[in-house]
Write a protein that binds this DNA or RNA. Structure first.
Lengths: 342, 342
DNA sequence: GTTTTGTGCTAAATGCATTTAGCACTCTCT
DNA sequence: AGAGAGTGCTAAATGCATTTAGCACAAAAC
């Protein structure tokens, strides 16, 4: 079967085929208000256009309008976490529903590549830019000043700009609230990240999460058992801290984990001592990564709403809501089986 | 600080500022071969161009050339698995290094959205299309015939087309080989997916993975213990099968897991019986998802090379290697701590 | 001294959709 | 009947980079 190289159908083709001028066809197909063209002509042009399968050439439209109906998304790193994926999904969904497409680039974790990526995007004339940061411990962002409307997701910069963040100011309190509802008298928090407190500018999410938690804890009747600080937030760290805690004789009614990876280690340590989350004690976590559903029992976790954040960023951009504001998005508690008395 | 709306610097601006014609400037900046322009003029134009910060307008270039230096990537689903992310990373890396940008879209798991997404891409005049499938149990792909150069990644269609696949024809044999090297006498495979065999067209990767494994197994001296078929490939399935296996008195020297999620369940079941992977017996898996590094001990796994697959797809597209061939990419064995005698 | 060859450069056309200015015609009103 | 308003439509300009055809001049060749 020979693939006959079909020449693109242009506006001129439609005009000729329908016996009208290009101007008329353009006006009709774009439903330009305030123009007067006979119903008959309108009908005819529409018919011809669909019959020929006319699609306006995006390059020509962009050239004329200076708009591309394209948004740029530059990400810290797409790999490793589920977060970038979810953010992309949110962005794509919202952009598609508003007839925009998305150009993507990645800095591969190297901040210095940011400038290059932005230049690329500028060159391609995107209508707006979304800068996504997966690693919330952002350093100096080095965002070059741009004319482009820009929204930061999960990141904050020195200079004021529009940004979308998870509502970590409330997430810690929400966790404590849920622990209280579970009927617990005592709780262990496993655990804060070493050094995080020292530099709240660098670890804004983490600082807020734990700040809000600490506040809620002192306002509660809960007995807080021990003080567990972790080197990093991997399963090993959670495993070691929990093992140590149990060895020291602590037996909390509930454990709040810094994130799901830590919770995984906590589960392992508990299993070794024959303790079952959800029946012997409650375990609650943050982030709601995919492993939360892999654990046995499945882990209740306070979700990082990356998809919603991505969608919101698109919304702000397209609605021109570009005041330098931090938009905070609620972090929903995803109930599964690791809490007592659901 | 007032943001002065800077008009874009165009070729005409450079031409005027350097006292040359647009034609000359264009030729100089594009290093057109076979043209004769004085070294002095060349120098001057280049200087002026950089000074003014001239960047050609992509829309205008596209309009003229019919090329956009943009590739389209349409994915099954970006969320859930790490695979899409890695594929995007590979695509981005290769595309960037060859001065192309990437437009992305997602069908959100709905095959019928594929046609719509392709139309969108066509409309934006991408130079080539990459269709990525995360869910290897692809159904009818419903890929509309396109004029566009297209490469399928991790998917095959009825009609012959260029595709990039993991080399599952060898992955099973590679696993068996490694188990033999570990000194094992007996092995359990946990486990094949129920129904997969019935429809090899629908589950091509899985069929190949197990076909190659079965072949290698009969050619080996290994004793194969039991026959474990799973409903699905989640941790629960691996947990249940392993528990059953141990209850039935089997005690293999090595376990080959269908994938890492299954391996996680296997680990849980082994832990309950006090069996430690890497010391009491070997565990080997497929895919190398992120959880492989979360497990204790860390899991050795045969990696699905999605990043390389994405990069290769870009390469094929840009090099015009579009014969209907299945390109198979080696699946490397990632050694960690779950195999005895590394 | 005239033709040929070569050099350095430019005007104008091209790709395609959108928009502005305005033409030609018919009604309506006085 | 002539002015004015309204209707239906079109020619041409615009945005920007690239490419083709070719101009004007100088040097070399016969």
């Amino acid at each position: 079967m020979e693939t006959h190289k079909v020449k693109r159908v242009t506006l001129a083709d439609v005009a000729e085929a329908s016996g009208m001028s290009k101007a008329a066809v353009s006006m009709i197909l774009n439903k330009k208000p305030g123009t007067r063209l006979s119903a008959e002509a309108t009908e005819r042009v529409r018919a011809v256009a669909t019959e020929l399968g006319y699609r306006p050439n995006a390059a020509a439209q962009s050239l004329r309008s200076g708009k591309t109906r394209t948004l740029g998304f530059i990400s810290d790193q797409v790999t490793v976490t589920r977060f970038a994926s979810e953010m992309i999904t949110g962005i794509l969904r919202e952009a598609e529903s508003r007839d925009h497409t998305v150009l993507i680039a990645e800095t591969f974790g190297k901040p210095e590549q940011m400038a290059e990526a932005i230049t690329q995007m500028t060159h391609r004339d995107v209508d707006g830019l979304i800068l996504g940061f997966m690693d919330s411990r952002q350093r100096d962002l080095k965002i070059p000043r741009t004319e482009l409307p820009t929204v930061l997701v999960n990141g904050i910069d020195e200079s004021p700009c529009t940004s979308v963040l998870p509502n970590e100011r409330e997430s810690g309190a929400k966790a404590v609230q849920r622990v209280i509802e579970s009927g617990a008298q005592s709780v262990a928090v496993i655990g804060e990240l070493k050094n995080a407190e020292k530099n709240p500018r660098i670890y804004p999410s983490i600082t807020r999460r734990f700040g809000s938690m600490r506040q809620a804890l002192v306002e509660s009747e809960l007995e807080v058992l021990g003080h567990w600080v972790l080197e990093d937030w991997n399963p090993t760290d959670g495993y070691e801290a929990t093992t140590r805690m149990l060895a020291e004789g602590y037996k909390p009614d509930a454990i709040i984990c810094a994130n799901d990876r830590v919770a995984m280690g906590v589960f392992q340590a508990l299993a070794e001592k024959g303790l079952a989350p959800g029946t012997d004690l409650s375990v609650l976590s943050f982030d709601d990564e995919i492993i939360a559903t892999y654990l046995r029992p499945q882990l209740s976790s306070i979700r990082l709403p990356y998809e919603e954040m991505g969608a919101m960023a698109v919304g702000l951009l397209l609605d021109g809501k570009l005041e330098p504001v931090e938009h905070e998005i609620d972090m929903p508690l995803i109930e599964r089986d690791s809490m007592k008395s659901n």
